[in-house]
């Protein structure tokens, strides 16, 4: 019962110093074992990610619909995109989402992480509470906040109780307020996730730096700015990219807060919502949706390149 891989390991067992050399000497019965092990994973990933990606690339340059394979139309879809108000609105909304949500995601979780990063049961309780929304589905969270922000929801009623407003605030119907409400919900859901990443980074800061800061009489804010922030700089950059990608991809919260409509006249559509609308269902314009997907891929790809660059730079300086 020997296989190529058995041989490989056995050789190393016998003569640990020798360089690895056994791969080629496979006995035929066992050569397929690695591929058999890879089969489920490769099959799923190739069928549902790799090939569909190639297909999206192709679709983007055709006028295909769900029922018609379509023909090559060159850049026509992209020309159409430039004149499509809904696309431009979606691009604007998703980009605004990145611009507005990311600063909060980079800073607030760090503040929270510094506050809860010490041992003790009570701190564990706080960590758990702050993380809780992360495990909740965006639909449930969306429904909860729809109820809260409704014309007669808790927020409006509370504001009215204190006499702060005469009319209910149209959180869920105004074009801009709706977008900002959705951003708030996104931040609400995501704080705990990034906080945990920061907690891991905080654990790596040299404790003596804090001692030194204390000896110098630095206060809480000063310590945060000159010890904590520099200490988690690379994590912060990483979270900046991660949350940018997540913000640009936003779907569930906005979908639920708008009741699936994308707001009045589709003014609150995001990129993902637009893809879902154009590319699925019986009226699907798969070619056009492919072009939107491709634009999305380019934006996210650019963010990804930034991420890889940051990680590589970090690897070098370490």
């Amino acid at each position: 019962m020997s296989s190529s891989t058995d041989l490989a390991v056995r050789e190393r067992a016998a003569a640990p110093r020798r360089p690895r050399a056994a791969g080629a000497r496979a006995t035929h019965r066992w050569r397929f074992v690695p591929w058999l092990m890879l089969l489920p994973g490769l099959a799923v990933v190739i069928t549902f990610i790799v090939l569909p990606f190639g297909n999206t690339l192709r679709l983007a340059f055709t006028d295909a619909t769900l029922l018609r394979p379509g023909r090559w139309v060159g850049l026509e879809n992209f020309e159409r995109l430039l004149g499509d108000d809904r696309f431009l609105t979606a691009l604007l909304n998703s980009s605004l989402y990145v611009v507005c949500v990311v600063p909060f995601m980079m800073l607030l979780p760090l503040v929270l992480a510094t506050l809860v990063s010490r041992p003790g049961r009570l701190m564990g309780f706080f960590r758990t509470s702050i993380y809780m929304p992360v495990v909740m589905s965006s639909v449930v969270v969306g429904l909860i906040w729809t109820s809260m922000l409704d014309r007669r929801g808790l927020v409006n009623e509370t504001l009215a109780t204190f006499g702060a407003i005469a009319e209910p605030v149209p959180f869920l119907t105004d074009r801009w307020l709706l977008l900002f409400s959705a951003m708030f919900v996104t931040v609400w859901m995501g704080l705990g996730y990034y906080m945990v990443i920061y907690l891991a980074a905080l654990a790596n800061i040299d404790g003596t730096l804090y001692d030194a800061a204390a000896m110098d009489g630095a206060g809480v804010v000063r310590t945060f700015l000159s010890v904590t922030m520099p200490g988690v700089r690379s994590t912060m950059a990483l979270i900046g990219v991660l949350s940018s990608v997540a913000a640009f991809r936003v779907f569930g919260e906005v979908y639920v807060l708008t009741g699936g409509t994308g707001g009045v006249g589709g003014r609150n559509l995001t990129m993902t919502m637009l893809i879902q609308r154009e590319g699925t269902g019986l009226q699907a314009q798969t070619g056009y949706a492919g072009a939107i997907s491709l634009v999305m891929f380019v934006v996210l790809g650019a963010l990804l390149v930034v991420q890889l660059w940051l990680q590589q730079r970090e690897g070098r300086t370490r």
Partner: peptide
């Protein structure tokens, strides 16, 4: 596959 955002292939996934 890890680097492909799911939204960009979702239409093709639906076709599959």
């Amino acid at each position: 596959a890890l680097l492909v955002p799911i939204e960009t292939v979702i239409v093709s996934q639906f076709l599959v």
